[in-house]
Design a protein around this nucleic acid. Structure first.
Lengths: 154, 154
DNA sequence: GCGCGTTAGTTGAACTCTCAACTAAAACGG
DNA sequence: CCGTTTTAGTTGAGAGTTCAACTAACGCGC
């Protein structure tokens, strides 16, 4: 929707926006690179494995997995196909909905995740939490929750 | 580097990290999608055009452009190749360093950027600034600047 | 029970990004 | 000067993402 009168960013907002852009991009790129190097998977795949590992019986409907891991359905389909080829996830038919598929984290996949987790968590701590004061961490949570909620509806 | 004893995230940190992940991913995805829909370019390309438009004579060395737009050199090479094919950027030899290339934003590229900017800025405002209180915006700037600085060295 | 809109999930093509390998030129060191 | 090491930038292959199109099954309304 093209506004009639653009509400441009003032210099302060501009600075905030660019800092945020730089920081979040750098953070994600760094974590992604570390994960790729140490575990051979992109961060999006790690996220999928984590959500599966936390689900009852390590099983989740594809759509719920997409939702919780922040992937589009298409992305998840491709990702699970690759994870299945690697033997870390298996797909099963859903007994109550014949359209449905259930992704199931295998023992091998779980082991892979368990091996990757410490290094990744350490990265999150080093690059994010260690850099911020306790107050800032609290602030970041408030900000993130507002934004996440807002964008969930959008 | 695999730590001997993992410093796991406590529940509060976990919640913060996941909220941040969700929010920043949703924000970037949304802006990227809007930009792709309205201007036909990904956000990374928009960023490149913006930096060029702000440079003296709308010219920048490839390496400086990569640095300022947060792209790897490889990514920038591919991106500029595509932008050049679209007629929005031209590459010129650097007179002082025969290895160097200078990217130059054409009038056509500038026009394209000028057309895309209002919609994008409106998106940034709607999805980010409108959602936060003035205090939170200030906090976000502080947090982002610390993180950006920290990761720049890494 | 039937039609129709909705939802679940997949697929392939086009595009972007990453990584490693590569060329070429500058800069350094003796 | 000459050899070595950096730095600039590109390239191609491989992998991930997106978008639109598609199949199939659910479920609502009559």
């Amino acid at each position: 929707m093209m506004p009639v009168m653009t509400r441009w960013l003032d210099p302060d907002e501009q600075r905030t926006w660019r800092a945020f852009l730089t920081a979040s991009r750098a953070l994600m790129d760094t974590l992604d690179r570390e994960l790729q190097r140490d575990a051979g998977i992109p961060h999006a795949y790690y996220e999928i494995l984590v959500r599966l590992s936390e689900a009852p019986e390590r099983r989740l409907r594809m759509s719920e997995l997409a939702e919780s891991s922040g992937s589009s359905r298409s992305r998840l389909s491709h990702a699970v196909a690759r994870l299945e080829a690697a033997g870390w996830v298996r797909r099963e038919d859903c007994p109550t909905d014949r359209r449905g598929q259930i992704a199931h984290l295998t023992d091998e996949g779980f082991a892979k995740l368990a091996a990757a987790a410490p290094g990744h968590v350490e990265g999150v701590r080093r690059h994010l939490f260690d850099a911020l004061s306790p107050t800032q961490v609290e602030q970041l949570r408030g900000i993130s929750e507002v934004l996440a909620e807002r964008l969930r509806r959008a």
